[in-house]
Nucleic acid binder design. Structure first.
Lengths: 228, 228
DNA sequence: ATGGTTCATATTGTCAACAAAATTCGGGAT
DNA sequence: ATCCCGAATTTTGTTGACAATATGAACCAT
């Protein structure tokens, strides 16, 4: 995982690298402090982050590569705005990529530790579903998907998924899951978990694709206020 | 050494932007003029391209985002080296992404013009196969895949595919296709073309996935000298 | 008011100089 | 010879100044 110094947060022990700066700006974007369409002024950022303009500039390039901002000539960086259609287009890519991850996870002979982690996550999601703890479930859900991608062992797939997943975090979801969608979501998880543990790639991919597709359908029916 | 700068693809008489610079360096990488693992020295590039170091630097960030180079702290930019395993990992992602593109192309009601283009490309590939014109077939093959992605109308899928396709161009293939693989490749194309024109998403995706998978198998069996 | 023009300001684009770090090279000891 | 150490050189990191462009305000004519 991450390592070394880093020193996240507001302070900085070592001098911040452009990657660090990018991370700071990124958190500002997903948290909504920087609104979509907003123009990011270099001189403002230098004041806030206490770094020179060239670092901000390189950080912009990094973020543009990740798709979080758009750089337009002589006008600088704009926080990228994603329409509902955009989210759905990404959703389709996410469907096949996460499907592939599930397939590869099922193809791989998992270690006992990995199998245990998967079972544990599933059990905790079941518990959260039972107790209707939406917030907890949401966190576990993310960890679950991340675990499967990790088990798939394909860094490129992981990177591509990250790219189409980040914009979702920017949505302002009042309560990510309703009781009904939560139950449906976890039903999908149980199928996927079973298929992966059984070493059934075909079934795992199909189940994951159906699961993500169902999530996309939910996204499609969200009210406009959610998209910002 | 290379000639002058100025007038790149979208050629305007203006001074080169960092994106233009990135394009120049990129062509140097895919052409093999810059070998994998090679360190790109900023001052060398400034001499060749006649631009300041800051532009080179931002170009590096762009290329790092596209996965062509790796930036390591205090050591600058290295041309990224892709092992056979890397290519195969990307190949799997490419399989599902191009499969999705084929599916979406089949879902979309294509215009007469689009249907014509597809048929034309297929006809010309058939002719090239007949005449065993490998070089021509290779060019048409690329145009064909590009057209399908275009027809799919999903810019995010297009972008992701581009990312896992570029490293393939860096391989030194003496003659991309042998007679046998060419025939197998075009057989796949005919299936895909038929499915898309028939508006059969399921079949189109399946055919494309099989097609890409078969190409990956070919990649897997290439001799080491091809990877550089 | 409305629309358009000019000028002042704000912001980005670029470069060149300097600082910090890494690499290379040579010398000396074993 | 081989290894290690340290200076000289190369290369990257960072800053600040200046130029080019865009933005916004004030002004004028209708």
């Amino acid at each position: 995982m991450l390592a070394e110094d880093e020193e996240i947060g507001s302070g900085q022990g070592r001098t911040a690298t452009p990657a660090d700066v990018a991370e700071q700006i990124k958190s500002g974007i997903v948290s909504g402090r920087f609104a979509p369409g907003q123009r990011l002024i270099e001189s403002d950022l230098t004041g806030d982050l206490k770094v020179g303009r060239s670092k901000i500039r390189e950080a912009f390039r990094i973020l543009a590569g990740e798709g979080l901002i758009e750089i337009v000539a002589n006008r600088g960086a704009l926080v990228r705005r994603h329409s509902r259609e955009d989210l759905l287009s990404m959703g389709r890519a996410r469907e096949v990529l996460e499907g592939l991850a599930a397939r590869m996870a099922a193809e791989t002979p998992l270690s006992d530790d990995q199998r245990g982690r998967l079972r544990d996550l599933q059990a905790r999601m079941d518990a959260a579903e039972e107790a209707n703890e939406i917030r907890t479930y949401d966190t576990l859900n993310q960890a679950y998907h991340r675990a499967i991608v990790e088990f798939a062992g394909n860094p490129y797939v992981a990177e591509l998924i990250e790219k189409v997943r980040v914009p979702l975090l920017g949505l302002r979801l009042p309560n990510g899951f309703s009781a009904a969608t939560l139950e449906q979501s976890n039903e999908g998880h149980r199928f996927i978990t079973h298929a992966i543990l059984a070493g059934a790639p075909e079934a795992a991919e199909a189940a994951m694709r159906a699961h993500v597709r169902s999530g996309n359908a939910t996204t499609a029916s969200l009210p406009d206020e959610v998209f910002r």
